[in-house]
Computed example of a mutant assay.
Amino acid sequence: MRAALVKEYGPPEGLTIEEVADLVPGPGEVVIEVGAVSVNFPDILVVEGTYQNLPQRPFSPGKEAAGRVVAVGEGVGRVAVGQRVLALVEYGGYAEQLVAPENVVVELPDAVSYSDAAAFGLAYSTAHLGLRERAQMKAGETVLVTGAGGGVGSAAVQLAKAWGATVIALAEDDEKADLARRQGADVTLTSSAESLRDDILAATGGRGVDVTLEMLGGDFLIQVIRASAWEGRVVIVGFASGGQTPIKPGHILVKNISLVGLQSSDYHSRTPEHVRSALSEIFELSQQGRISSCIDTSFTLDQVGAGLQYVKDGRARGKVVVTTGLG
């Protein structure tokens, strides 16, 4: 099989495409012939060697892949050879084959393509876990999504709207704001950190927001906390702005605000059944036409370095996938 390999940490263009041995499943594992894999920002950190979880080199990055099961190991009983599946893993997706534990594999409905499944995988399950598991979002609440032009942000806007929320989307620029609007956002903002609190309060009649899925960090997080409603919940997903400004406990205390974190990959290893359940609901919502994968563009396996650079440069308007040609 062919695989994109990290031999030395560095820029995405340093990935090499090589022939490697076909994979063999161990006990409890399955081998998947990959049809599509999604590009996620953590993949860039993995390639550059700055991610918190790095395997021994050489290895293939890629945290989610959709395809067809071609082999199963001893003890596998939930999936079978020939099934269409999606797997969420720590690495290994940028290849023509992927080996994955059975418990992180979810079956695909026939109506969901490999590209759509890969685009849904990590981003949409992260948004699902953030809104449902960590924030306990309810219909009728007001939800703020920061970083709304990215993969998780786009997913959160659509899911919150599908579940009956009023959605406010904070986007980097007018183009990404327009994307969020088309995905169902009721209000779109392109605020700076300095104006964010006032803009949110203006958009909510001074009440503030019930739930925030927060991906920017720094001063944006501070202003989001200050613009939360009484008993608001803020779920921290990332720090895309690069800042980790100290938080004042008084801002949390005076309105009984809950500030919680989300490391979605922990759910893959600790409670994979939650992830499988989330993805099953995501696929169902897709088939009902209530959400879409929002794929911006795709690259071939030979172009994987360019696909990573496309995301790193901030050019993506939605999800980016890498395809292998498997139909």
Rank of each mutant, 00 (worst) to 15 (best):
M1H: 14
R2H: 13
A3W: 11
A4L: 03
P11H: 12
G14H: 12
G14L: 09
E18N: 13
L23R: 09
V24M: 10
V30P: 06
V37T: 15
V37R: 04
N40E: 14
F41W: 09
P42K: 01
V47C: 04
G49C: 10
T50G: 11
T50S: 15
Q52K: 13
N53Y: 15
P55V: 05
P58T: 02
F59I: 04
V69E: 06
V72D: 02
E74I: 07
G75Q: 04
G77C: 04
G77E: 14
R78G: 02
V79I: 14
V79F: 07
Q83P: 05
Q83K: 08
L86R: 04
L86H: 02
G92C: 01
G92E: 03
G92V: 00
G93Q: 02
L98R: 05
V99A: 07
A100H: 04
A100Y: 07
A100T: 11
P101I: 02
V112L: 01
S113I: 01
S113T: 12
S115Q: 07
D116H: 14
A118D: 04
A118M: 00
A119C: 04
G121D: 03
L122I: 12
A123W: 08
A127H: 01
L131C: 06
E133K: 09
R134L: 00
A135T: 05
K138M: 11
G140F: 09
T142W: 05
L144V: 01
L144W: 03
G150Y: 01
G153W: 12
A155W: 12
G164Y: 02
G164Q: 06
A165F: 13
T166A: 14
I168P: 08
A171W: 06
E175A: 11
K176N: 09
D178F: 04
R181P: 07
R181Q: 13
A185W: 01
T188R: 11
T190H: 13
T190V: 07
T190E: 07
S192E: 14
E194T: 09
D198W: 05
L201A: 01
V209W: 01
D210L: 05
V211F: 07
G217Q: 08
I222K: 14
I222A: 06
Q223W: 03
V224G: 04
A227C: 10
A227L: 11
V237M: 03
G238M: 03
G242C: 12
G243T: 00
T245M: 10
T245G: 12
P246Y: 08
K248I: 06
K248Y: 12
G250N: 14
I252C: 07
I252N: 10
L253M: 15
K255L: 07
S258K: 15
V260H: 05
L262Q: 09
L262T: 09
H268D: 14
S269T: 15
P272Y: 11
E273S: 10
V275A: 04
S277A: 15
A278T: 03
L279Q: 08
L279S: 06
S280F: 00
I282E: 14
I282D: 07
Q287D: 08
Q288A: 14
G289E: 06
S293P: 08
S293K: 04
C294F: 07
C294H: 02
I295F: 09
F299I: 11
V304R: 07
G305V: 04
L308C: 11
L308I: 08
Y310T: 00
Y310L: 04
A316L: 07
A316G: 13
K319M: 05
V321W: 09
T323G: 09
T324F: 05
T324P: 13
